[in-house]
């Protein structure tokens, strides 16, 4: 229906220009630029915006709450129990107050998700996983530690050496308060040197096992060793998976 499809539409108002193509390429270029500098822009903007809006707008350092099952398990502080079992001399069950009575460790770190968002300066308090393993008495032949969640779906794993790192804790406080339900409370794992998906929420059981059982996210394609960029856990060959 256009009689001359190969010539641009003429008009009396001067020569036509390929404004559209330039605008299209310009917008795509802006997107590429945003990927290159977006991380820095985001931190500047979120500092400027403060914590109010930052929780919702895309430039905020906001938590993205992930749940596999679609809801957050509700576990009261009184009924919470943590089982330590498997290849150990003394299988143990801890209540929340049992955990709070043990020597506490506090860590302040940037929480970093593998997909690129992060929240700076998050304070965690809890018990070193190494202390719980030592108390239980790890038997020879133990290779990995598997973790179960009260959500009934999430699982995680660490090598026995990773599990003994001093910044791997069973956490019950976040930012000075009990961990909320949506953040995995009352008790969750916090694996500071690795990406967030390794820090399993609503921790229900710690099992010492004779092999590495890849967790939920690893079965969905994430690396089993979730070291943060720049942390070189792999320089110690015992810490990485062969």
């Amino acid at each position: 229906m256009n009689p001359t499809p190969d010539t641009p539409p003429e008009d009396t108002a001067g020569p036509v220009r390929r404004v559209g193509r330039r605008a299209f390429l310009g917008l795509v270029g802006l997107g590429v630029l945003g990927v290159a500098v977006g991380g820095r822009v985001q931190s500047v903007l979120s500092n400027a915006a403060g914590s109010g809006l930052g929780g919702v707008l895309p430039f905020g350092n906001n938590w993205r709450i992930y749940t596999i099952t679609g809801n957050y398990p509700l576990i009261s502080r009184d009924s919470y129990r943590l089982q330590v079992s498997g290849l150990v001399d003394h299988p143990t069950t801890y209540s929340l107050s049992d955990l709070e009575a043990l020597p506490a460790t506090t860590l302040v770190k940037t929480f970093q998700c593998v997909t690129g968002w992060q929240v700076p300066d998050v304070e965690w308090k809890g018990v070193r996983l190494a202390d719980l393993l030592t108390a239980a008495g790890v038997q020879p032949g133990a290779v990995g530690v598997s973790f179960d969640s009260y959500d009934g779906a999430d699982t995680e794993s660490l090598t026995i050496d990773q599990a003994h790192l001093s910044d791997v804790i069973v956490a019950y406080e976040m930012l000075g308060k009990p961990i909320t339900r949506e953040h995995g409370g009352p008790v969750r794992l916090y694996v500071a040197p690795m990406y967030g998906y390794k820090s399993l929420k609503w921790l229900s059981a710690i099992r010492v096992v004779d092999r590495i059982e890849p967790g939920y996210w690893e079965q969905n394609g994430y690396p089993t060793n979730g070291w943060l960029d720049g942390t070189t856990g792999n320089t110690n060959p015992r810490l990485g998976l062969a």
Binding site: A36, P58, D229
Partner: peptide, 24 residues
């Protein structure tokens, strides 16, 4: 964001920022 492994954390942050802002 989906196939993040070859990309540095800075690129992933930038991609998250652009994907989120542009979606709004």
């Amino acid at each position: 964001l989906k196939w993040f492994q070859p990309f540095s954390i800075s690129i992933r942050e930038g991609a998250t920022f652009v994907h989120d802002s542009l979606s709004f």
